[in-house]
Design a protein around this nucleic acid. Structure first.
Lengths: 119, 119
DNA sequence: GAGGGTTATGTCTGCCGGGACATAACGGAG
DNA sequence: CTCCGTTATGTCCCGGCAGACATAACCCTC
């Protein structure tokens, strides 16, 4: 991803759902690839895991974030629903808001060995 | 803690450090109790774990967040350094900023069974 | 000096999350 | 009808993390 690897955000919600970079990137990759397995390959994770994450997301929201249908050769595949795109956009916005927050800069400066890499 | 249990924030930094509610609450409890073990008791975690978290924090920042000295009966104990208080304040500020973000409200509404509990 | 509360550290075990592997069911292309 | 790529699901196993237990060193109060 083109995102800053030095900082990532994970949200913990009430019902055991955690939403972080992993699910966000997966959602984005599915939207761009049109397939769960292709997205998984691109992100270097097994299809098993990618599907598990999708199932988790779909189960915790009141409507699925990812629609999917079986069959290969352009037959089946997966797509991100409106809700899914909305969730993804919200997460990215929060990520950006956080990244630009002054407190993050303060914390970074207090970290060990983080001074060197702001060339 | 008096904080909203339905949402929590975890920051992932570059060098394997993760800072979330656990460490933040611990830091705050140490500041208020003046002792690692007392803080651990209050939060319902073992001293072993509390100390491990402190060690992790102190190791990842360029200066310790918690000062400690041995001995009981008001002899030793632990206190949160200026840096520690600053880090804690920064985290609380980010938490608040996040909690009040409109995207969080949007996400909450999309979650399963989250509508009922806003009495 | 005895006792209690504290920091600091070692070790063991159980659990569970994730990775690896396997398989079924399906659908379009050719 | 065959083949390929996909969704969907089951099972096994291993590593790492968390909790439980144990101990040492320390320091103040009484």
């Amino acid at each position: 991803m083109e995102n800053d690897p030095r900082l990532s955000l994970r949200l913990h919600f009430n019902k055991g759902l955690t939403f972080g970079r992993g699910k966000a990137d997966l959602l984005q990759a599915i939207a761009e690839e049109g397939s769960i397995s292709a997205a998984g390959r691109r992100l270097g994770m097994s299809y098993r895991r990618a599907w598990a994450l999708v199932e988790d997301m779909n189960g915790h929201f009141h409507a699925p974030l990812v629609d999917s249908s079986r069959g290969g050769a352009k037959g089946g595949g997966a797509s991100v629903t409106e809700l899914g795109q909305s969730v993804l956009a919200d997460y990215r916005a929060l990520e950006a808001m956080l990244r630009d927050a002054p407190q993050i800069a303060t914390l970074r400066m207090a970290l060990e060995g983080d001074i060197s890499e702001q060339k």
